[in-house]
């Protein structure tokens, strides 16, 4: 498991990163924690002649919470997320989800930006960001632009990011209400068999808003607006859960792999979503 030869760059300025991307186009790739890209390179499933390490770029590893908005730099690690007190208070679902990603060694290196930008349907952060209605900041030759997480994912490893752009930060409106990130996996370090991110608002015993996204059940994360809508206006009773599950099942499109066949994944997706909703509702 040795990658093909590549040139390694460690620029200190984002302009230099963009210049390298412009110069080499599809032959270049930026690397954050490297925990998705390097294994692919070692398996020679990804050949990257020009690898640009973002570790030396300043300003990409900050977390700020102000004016109802959370901003997370692309180089913030999962470990940073877990240990940020302000974040735990403002958006505890981030911590709950991050704790279910891989293992501590990986979380020291793995970044939020890498996790959301890579477009791997197995990654947990993309679905979570769709649930939280996050916005991704992309910097490219023409300056900065924003793309909603819910519009970002096109297919496995295919996103709205252009080859010459770098995802620099993630912005999230401070979430309201109860939350849950529920994930079934075979073992520590595994991608989800099925995972559900749920954020839910309760007023006077009724659900007034609900946001639901699913992980590793299609070739992209799945934000299921219909599943959330099925809960709004209900007391999140059994009928509402059934309706939300049905709506979600209409949106996902799992494929068979070593985790199991499609029928199993769909069943488990329903079970996991119901548990996530129930837990989020109990916290709302």
């Amino acid at each position: 498991m040795i990658p093909a030869a590549f040139d390694y760059y460690r620029p200190t300025k984002m302009d230099d990163v963009i210049a390298l991307l412009k110069e080499h186009g599809d032959d270049a790739r930026v690397m954050a924690g490297g925990h998705s890209l390097i294994p692919m390179m070692k398996l020679r499933m990804a050949e990257i002649p020009h690898l640009i390490d973002l570790q030396a770029i300043d300003g990409l590893n900050e977390i700020s919470i102000k004016d109802g908005q959370i901003t997370i730099g692309a180089m913030v690690t999962q470990h940073d997320l877990i240990n940020h007190a302000g974040l735990e208070a403002a958006a505890p679902i981030l911590r709950e989800a991050a704790l279910q990603i891989a293992d501590p060694q990986v979380r020291y290196m793995g970044t939020v930006g890498g996790n959301v930008a890579n477009g791997d349907p197995g990654n947990d952060m993309p679905g979570l960001m769709q649930c939280l209605d996050a916005t991704f900041a992309l910097v490219g030759p023409g300056g900065e632009r924003s793309v909603a997480a819910r519009d970002f994912y096109e297919a496995a490893y295919m996103t709205a990011r252009e080859d010459e752009e770098v995802l620099t930060s993630v912005s999230i409106p401070v979430p309201q209400g109860g939350y849950a990130y529920e994930k079934q996996k075979r073992k520590i370090g595994d991608y989800a068999t099925a995972a559900a991110a749920v954020q839910i608002v309760k007023e006077d015993g009724k659900c007034t808003a609900a946001s639901i996204a699913m992980t590793n059940l299609s070739d992209t994360p799945i934000y299921s607006a219909d599943a959330g809508a099925a809960l709004v206006g209900t007391a999140v009773d059994a009928a509402a859960l059934t309706a939300a599950k049905a709506a979600m099942l209409g949106d996902i499109d799992p494929t068979e792999d070593n985790r199991g066949p499609v029928a199993f994944k769909k069943h488990v997706a329903g079970v996991i979503l119901a548990r996530a909703i129930e837990r989020a509702w109990s916290r709302a």
């Binding site: 079934q184 075979r186 068999t193 985790r259 199991g260 066949p261 199993f264 069943h267 488990v268």
Partner: peptide, 16 residues
């Protein structure tokens, strides 16, 4: 006896 095979056993026994 991984998750899906246990699930399949339960499913075939009509437990779902």
């Amino acid at each position: 006896h991984d998750h899906w095979r246990i699930w399949k056993t339960a499913n075939e026994l009509g437990l779902h």
